[in-house]
Design a protein around this nucleic acid. Structure first.
Lengths: 224, 224
DNA sequence: TGAATAGTGTCTTTCAGACAATATGCC
DNA sequence: GGCATATTGTCTGAAAGACACTATTCA
């Protein structure tokens, strides 16, 4: 901050937050994208986001965008990385702080906002071409998500409060894109001491009912 | 980015980069701080940084600040986190993107720049009070550094190209603030297959000379 | 030969991963 | 009884951690 007195010498860039909203739907990892209603990249899909207002923090801005886009609050939200290449937006210099949110599908109510014609969930394996450098941002987010479910309990924010262990396993499989061994998975999950049995069972379908579990804490906990 | 057409409705904040420059000196983990020559927080110590210019990327800005402050280039540099609370700078809204650089002590040439009266290395265990929210930024950086040396080879950027295993161990001990077992440390480091013997020995002091090692790659590699 | 650091091996414990049979409910 | 999913344990190999003695150089 050695040059702060020279503020006026340097033009101020626009600052936005972009929020990658992940959810599990139909046994797939999906992400919310919005269709741009205006140029540039009109009619292309993009990561939802918007300007940071002068009286709000970056996290508040991300929370607001998340809520505007999906009606959801009180979910897992994490700052990822800040992208600021001078030419990433053709109109003017725009620096964007990216966030990732994890949301249970049953809470999402997609709503198109002013400059957007449509908001939709996309399978992360089948994304359309994205506007700006949003593919790069998406790739970064997915990498972070995959890394982080390995050593934290953040999946609590992708599930309903109570769930079967097989559902939990499915979330891991869908995010990591690989099959896991049922016995090893359950052994490990239970040994972490982050889950507790709800006492209730899930009678559903013509088969043995499953115990419903829940996370002891619905906040970020690092494994060991 | 659903509201980008409304640019003018939102005032643009100033954007700076702050760079935490870590080095190992005198068997301690140290960080470069600069003494502020102007208000606010005049005469207090701060993390070096400055405005992002309109034609440079964030990383270029960080690289430039690093070079201006220490004369160093081509070292490990990583973006950390972006701090943007509305009131973090009392003058105007300033959003800062923090970076961490790891520099071998023998490359550092501290030079005070325009708005700074002095630049100095501080033991990370004995920091003075810091300006702005810089203590928070420092804490974040130190946490990241400690985490990251556990699973990457980034210490290559804190050492001279060739080093004794005991020096390498000392770096880990100083960063992690704990003693390590010599046999286990060497066993693990060598088993990672990231080091190679230089063939040369370090004759120094009245004792058995040590083999000098070097990293096979002087770029980031994740363990396993 | 004494001081100082370099260099080395074994045992135990823990954790990850491979692997298949029985249990329970519904129809 | 048949179907579908839930639930459970053992063995093996790899890695981490505890732990102490010998080797080499210089003064």
């Amino acid at each position: 901050m050695n040059t702060k007195s020279n503020s006026k010498k340097y033009p101020h860039p626009a600052v936005t937050v972009d929020v990658l909203i992940f959810t599990i739907d139909d046994n797939q990892l999906k992400v919310v994208l919005v269709k741009r209603g205006i140029p540039p990249f009109k009619d292309m899909w993009a990561i939802p986001g918007g300007f940071v207002r002068s009286d709000e923090s970056l996290e508040q801005a991300a929370t607001r965008e998340l809520s505007e886009e999906t009606g959801v609050s009180r979910v897992y939200l994490e700052q990822l990385y800040t992208f600021g290449d001078p030419k990433r937006d053709p109109r003017e210099r725009v620096i964007t702080v990216s966030y990732m949110a994890l949301v249970p599908i049953n809470k999402i109510k997609l709503s198109a906002s002013t400059d957007v014609t449509e908001a939709k969930l996309f399978d992360t394996g089948k994304l359309p071409p994205l506007a700006f450098d949003h593919k790069k941002i998406f790739d970064y987010a997915l990498k972070r998500l995959r890394a982080k479910i390995e050593y934290t309990n953040i999946v609590y924010s992708l599930l309903t409060p109570q769930f079967r262990l097989s559902q939990l396993q499915k979330v891991y499989e869908v995010v990591l894109q690989k099959k896991l061994d049922k016995r090893n998975f359950r052994k490990r999950m239970l040994s972490l001491d982050l889950l507790k049995s709800s006492g209730k069972k899930d009678f559903q379908g013509a088969h043995r009912p499953a115990m419903l579990y829940q996370f002891k804490k619905r906040e970020v906990v690092f494994f060991v």
